[in-house]
């Protein structure tokens, strides 16, 4: 009797490990933010800084930002009307709250609906994810600003923000 149960038990043990391992793989995937695919959007949003993933902010944020490019965090980042419309369309269609983007959705935890936050680095989830980074690391000359994701997340341009 014992002999017939053994393969079944082994099977369960194997299944258990499989579930644990796959769960971890998926947890890693939680830090994926699809990079910009539109070449015009990528160029225009990536000349002065990393072309941030649209799924990092809700649509209301992108609309507000695109409405005030003349004063973009203190700098003039204006583009012509056609380009503005094209970029806005893309960002809104791929925003954190568009469709069923559950990964971007995580970054929206604690964000009030309609508050249209402008800085990704001020989102509650962003702050808690980076709480262990010491001050001196932020001040490092290769980092300079919290918006310089690639300084630490070497795969940021490809959408990976795991380490």
């Amino acid at each position: 009797m014992n002999l017939t149960y053994r393969p079944l038990a082994l099977g369960f043990i194997a299944l258990f490990f499989f579930v644990v391992v796959m769960g971890r793989v998926q947890a890693g995937g939680n830090h994926f933010y699809a990079p910009i695919a539109d070449p015009v959007v990528k160029e225009e949003c990536g000349s002065c800084h990393l072309a941030f993933a649209p799924s990092m902010l809700p649509a209301s944020s992108w609309q507000r930002m695109m409405g005030n490019l003349k004063n973009h965090f203190g700098d003039d980042a204006s583009v012509d009307a056609d380009t503005t419309a094209r970029i806005t369309r893309y960002l809104v269609a791929n925003a954190a709250d568009a469709g069923d983007r559950r990964y971007g959705g995580k970054l929206l935890k604690g964000v009030a609906l309609g508050s249209a936050p402008q800085r990704i680095t001020e989102l509650p989830k962003w702050v808690s994810e980076h709480r262990k980074v010491p001050d001196w690391e932020w001040r490092h000359k290769e980092v300079r600003t919290k918006a310089n994701c690639v300084a630490c997340h070497t795969g940021a341009e490809q959408g990976y923000y795991d380490e």
Binding site: C48, H49, L50, D75, E142, R144, T145, A147
Partner: peptide, 13 residues
């Protein structure tokens, strides 16, 4: 030296 690469004063890009 405009013949050399530059660096964005704010973002470092």
């Amino acid at each position: 030296n405009p013949a050399a690469p530059g660096k964005h004063a704010k973002t470092g890009k």
